[in-house]
Structures are given as C-alpha cells and as structure tokens.
Design a binder for these strands. Structure first.
Lengths: 113, 113
DNA sequence: ACGGGTGGTTACCGGCGGGATACCGGCCGG
DNA sequence: CCGGCCGGTATCCCGCCGGTAACCACCCGT
C-alpha cells in the first residue's frame, strides 16, 4: 500500500494530533475502512486511531459512513474541507522530504557536541 | 508589532511544539532579541521560549547569535533552512485563515449535539 | 553600595496525550 | 457450538509538554 508520511517524531511538522496528518494523507486517494487505516499507520492502536478520527470528524475534516451490513462496514473519507487541506499539507510534506537530510544532519551535529 | 499566528489551540495545524510555528513567523522579518519575541507571543514564559528556541536550533531552523556587549545582546534569526520553511507554512496559515469559520462551525455543530 | 532591568537557567509539578491491555457485540465459517 | 474477524470501548499507566517560581550573572543609574 502507500507509505505513511515521515516518521513524525523527528519532523518539526505536525498537523493536529500525532496521527492526524498521516490519516489525512492515507485518505487522499479515497475512503478507507477502519482496519485498512491501521495497516499503513503501523503501530497505531485501535483506541488512538478512533480518538484521532473522532477529532478529525469534530473538525469537519473527515466523515464516518456506516454501510448497513450485515457485514457491517465503516468507511472514513475526507470532506471537501479535508480535501482542501491536502494541498498545503503536500507543500509541507514536500518540504520535509526535501530537507530531511539537513534536519537529520542538524540533529546529529548537536548530539555530537 | 506583528500579530501572532492563529490562536493555535483551535487550529488543527501545529509545527513542531506548541510555539515553534509562531516563533518562526515572528522571525520572518529578521532576527529578534529574546525579549522582543516575548511581546508578540503573549503569555509565553521565559523557560518555554528558551526551550522552543533550543529545539529550533537543534533542528537547524534558527541561529542564536550573541553580540558581545557590554549590553549583552542575544539575537535569534532564521537559518536558510528555517527561511525555506516559511513558504509552506504560509500556505498552511492561509488555509487556516480561509477555513477558520468552517472549523469553528464544525466544532459548534458537534458540541451542540 | 544598592535596586532594578536584561537574558537567561534550574527545580519542581500537574495534566493530558497516547500506548498497552482487556473486553465486547455482531456476524460468519467450520 | 466454537473460534475468529470487524469495529470498536473501557481502563490503566507513563512520559513529556508546558507552566510557576526561584535563582543568577552582569550591567546601569542614583
């Protein structure tokens, strides 16, 4: 599948809470189901994913749609508002990718002192 | 002086730690001294400002220069790397300003439930 | 000599973000 | 009937972020 955004612990960039940015990018190409989201976001626990998704819902960036089952199916997708956030976020991600090495270098230079 | 960025508690956007984004924007127009930074960042305490600045230094986004006194003077300015971050950040800030109302509306709609 | 302003550092502390773990209701395959 | 997968919820707990307060070295004006 698609890769998660940068290992955000090192990045100076965050959107919303720790995972929100990555979630939004994971939804870029269309709605995903709960467990589909857990795959690219390696390591996220169900609770934290739920929390983040609820937060994004509350901000009107994400919609939760329950497709009546029986195989009960829940999809999360971007609202137009959420989609509009993709552009500036992409700019930031491009920046991070472009300057990743410099950021790492700066860290190492400091810790070497 | 210039205004701080949006009251970040509500914004889904954060850069680095709580204050880093605002600090960077405050340095947009040139280096500032420690106490000059405390003015636009109303409410920031000396410790937290120091912390944030050290973090930004560690990431290579900000430089600290001590101008030999006697009136000991310390200036913080953006590195080229830091300056390059201004563009994508501006895009994000523009987005936030543009969609501020929608974000607030979404919050209120939810809390009304 | 003394108080006050600048530019910090250090010690302490509380809240909450987020991780681990356990559990749960509904449905399905065997 | 039993176990397992989906989509969560409940609970506990720990670390870290950020705030308060105290302290400090240096210089200046009186």
């Amino acid at each position: 599948m698609f890769d998660p955004v940068c290992p955000s612990g090192l990045s100076p960039i965050r959107v919303g809470d720790k995972w929100a940015g990555m979630i939004i990018r994971c939804l870029e190409q269309g709605p995903r189901r709960f467990s589909e989201l857990r795959v690219p976001l390696r390591g996220i626990t169900a609770k934290v994913l739920t929390q983040s998704l609820r937060g994004l819902e509350r901000s009107g960036l994400v919609v939760r749609t329950v497709h009546a089952g029986p195989p009960r199916q829940v999809e999360y997708g971007l609202t137009p508002l959420g989609r509009s956030l993709l552009e500036p976020m992409a700019a930031l991600c491009a920046w991070t990718e472009e300057h990743w090495d410099e950021l790492l270098d700066a860290r190492e230079a400091e810790t070497a002192i």
